[in-house]
Amino acid sequence: MRIKAAPLLLLLAITVSGCDTAPGKPEGTNSSPGLSTVSGVATKPAAGATIYLYRPGEDLRGPPFTTIGPLGSDGSYSVDLPAGDYIFLVRQRENGEDAGPLVEGDLKSDPHTLKVTPGQPVTLDLAAYIKEGNLKENFGAKMTNDTGVSGVIHNAEGNPVEGVRVHAYDHVQMSERPKYVSARTGPDGRYDLGLTGGGTYYICARDKYGGPPKVGDLYGRYDKGTVEPSSVIIKKGEKKKDVDITVHMVW
């Protein structure tokens, strides 16, 4: 992955700091007890971007602790947070989606860790860059082991479906962050999802990433006609083939 500070550096440097008190704001004035205000300015072209907040140890590719935004035209933000450490990231996807891997042309910042102390407002401005290279990040392709699952995604007519990802969960509820996510399917609808180990997985194919499937999304699940999804058990060293999934628009 290559992140380069482009000539069009979108936001200037992280000027912050963790210790500056916001001018004109007495300490803790506008926060609820036990919370501290973190605020900052993101100048235009970051308008429309979203700030993702994670707690240390959380997967930065997964659902965040919270989000701020999309930012308004002045790029400013303000959030009240309980004491603790947070990781701030700016992201803006050209395709308008609010989740999923970033690709070339998207806006992103480096992660910035901030300690929030009760009653001490902080100003934090974030620098963001246009992502270059790595046109299609492929979580699955990075796996080089011999365990995995593959198949074809098609529609009701049996035609291959392009542009969907296969998600593998290890909880039957399929509501947590997926354990593995494949690259988007190409015109042949094929997917090949590498796994780091054998186990029991619950599998679906969808065109969106994150959150439960919504009306209008493209979605399909491996199941046996039940409300509860059916498991796919893959043994260590096994490449399970022909796990095909049919997708349709969620009604």
Partner: peptide, 8 residues
């Protein structure tokens, strides 16, 4: 797919 949806 129809059989599965019918079951559901």
């Amino acid at each position: 797919l129809t059989a599965r949806e019918a079951a559901r």
